[in-house]
Write a protein that binds this DNA or RNA. Structure first.
Length: 434
RNA sequence: GGAGGGGUUCCCGAGUGGCCAAAGGGAUCAGACUGUAAAUCUGACGCGCGAGCUUCGGUGGUUCGAAUCCACCUCCCUCCA
């Protein structure tokens, strides 16, 4: 166990998962000293986490695998305030009821990534509302606020642009966010002997604030470690696609879509992402890269990445469903699918809808836009003009736009009831007659 | 409370009476090339198949005509009190 621990930091560095470390000279020794408790916070800003939280979640697990105890903190209190770190604008407050319901959702999500049955290293999930709910203002100001220097706080990079930049601003509420998060660290130190906080690189200011507060309130030496911002080689933002954010909740982003997201990662990002998002050995990833480079044609990296991450987030069943759809649609002729195959695709989460017998829209542009294949009829129109709309194997053109009932005639349906519509190369939608 | 500056289509950002559905860039979508990749090239990019309809913080005016002018309201920023 001791050896595993010293190996851990080295491995994280190999994976490029460490960005900044507070107390770097003493952290290895501390980790080597036995099983330690560490935490990472997740604020409820929606009813699901998205893949931006995946790296920290997996980090908790990496530490647990190395013999430490992970504490996942769900920010029932901080979520009520809003973290201003590197945010361009003041955020809208959510109601306590909403935040509370989100907290419960996140609690369940977070729990899937760590082990609660690991003896002394069993994971813990806490809510910082536990120790802030009954904190009264005067106590807060006298016992906690007194330890913070405004001079230091306004120097923090994370709020600097909000303070200096014209056209924005920061409320007192958001400004005090750092104090609340700092207090979390001090409190976890007291309650769980928690000595390390993990977070994204944007959390550096909040983490060091917590380290200072823990020292001042309890005289304790604690540490901080941040992970780099995940970037894409083309400079666009990681984790967003045409259809929006990639969520961890299967109801928001289906395992199929999730799998597809990772499958379409650029070559230049794939090996780095394998190191960030999987538990594959660094050496094995290097071997995959070498093999891909020697072979011509399509690399294996994306497939492995998609499989590993989908399994981590959606389990074996989710991965199986995702692969089933992918293989059906992208290998060979999708129109050659059997009737049970098509039924299975609907169950597996391929976007699908029922086609009413009567009352169909007059144009394909409207019907397909309503089905969610594109954001507007304009985009369908563009696709129609380029022969990019394919229904049951035949391409349609603008001439078909007004002929909805002919296109969806009963005798054109697969097995008398299915229409598989493809828009462009990757977007599919299955219509079934009711 | 006072003075000044600002709020433009997803984002940044031009536009100061008609030539404006609104420059340019980014993002995004589609096509070609490919490997469901990148880069590159092409087209689209408020909504509508179309005629046309609805936009430039909000409301109401002036005008043949307003994102552009006027009044009031609202939100943000800076300085002063």
């Amino acid at each position: 166990m001791i050896n595993m621990t010293s190996a851990l930091l080295a491995e994280l560095q190999q994976r490029e998962l460490t960005f900044q470390i507070a107390g770097e000279d003493k952290l290895p020794e501390w980790l080597n000293g036995g099983s330690r408790s560490l935490y990472c916070g997740f604020d409820p800003t929606a009813d699901s986490l998205h893949i931006g939280s995946l790296v920290p979640l997996l980090m908790l697990r990496r530490f647990q695998l190395a013999g430490h105890r992970p504490i996942a903190l769900v920010g029932g209190a901080t979520g009520l305030i809003g973290d201003p770190s590197f945010k361009a604008q003041e955020r809208q407050l959510n109601t306590p009821e909403v935040v509370e319901s989100w907290v419960e959702k996140l609690r369940g999500q977070v729990s899937r990534f760590v082990d609660f049955d690991a003896g002394a290293q069993s994971a813990v999930v806490v809510n910082n509302l536990e120790w802030t709910r009954d904190l009264d203002v005067l106590t807060f100001l006298r016992d906690i606020g007194k330890h913070f220097s405004i001079n230091t706080m306004i120097q923090k990079e994370s709020v600097k642009q909000r303070i200096e930049r014209e056209g924005s601003g920061i409320s007192f509420t958001e400004f005090t966010y750092m104090i609340l998060q700092s207090y979390d660290f001090a409190e976890l130190y007291k309650r769980y002997d928690c000595g390390l906080q993990l977070g994204g690189s944007d959390q550096w200011g909040n983490i060091t604030g917590g380290i200072d507060l823990t020292r001042r309130m309890h005289g304790g030496q604690v540490y901080g470690l941040t992970m780099p911002l995940i970037t894409k080689s083309d400079g666009s933002k990681f984790g967003k696609t045409e259809s929006g954010t990639i969520w961890l909740d299967a109801a928001r982003t289906s395992p199929y879509s999730f799998y597809q997201f990772w499958l379409s990662v650029a070559d230049s990002d794939a090996y780095r992402f394998l190191r960030y998002f999987t538990f594959l050995e660094v050496a094995d990833i290097a071997e995959i890269e070498r093999a891909d480079a020697e072979r011509s044609g399509r690399p294996e990296a994306q497939r492995i990445l998609a499989e590993e991450v989908t399994r981590l987030v959606h389990g074996d069943a989710g991965l199986a469903a995702a692969k089933r759809i992918t293989e059906s649609l992208f290998s060979g002729e999708p129109e050659g699918l059997s009737e049970p195959d098509l039924e299975q695709l609907m169950l597996d989460g391929l976007p699908s809808s029922l086609l009413p017998d009567r009352g169909l829209p007059e144009t394909l542009t409207q019907l397909l836009a309503d089905a969610g294949l594109a954001a507007s009829g304009k985009q369908i129109k563009d696709a129609l003009q380029r022969d990019a709309v394919i229904i049951n194997g035949s391409a349609l053109g603008m001439a078909d736009n007004g002929a909805v009932s002919a296109v969806f005639a009963a005798d054109k349906a697969l097995y008398g009831r299915f229409y598989l519509v493809r828009l462009g190369k990757k977007k599919y939608h299955l219509f079934a007659r009711s």
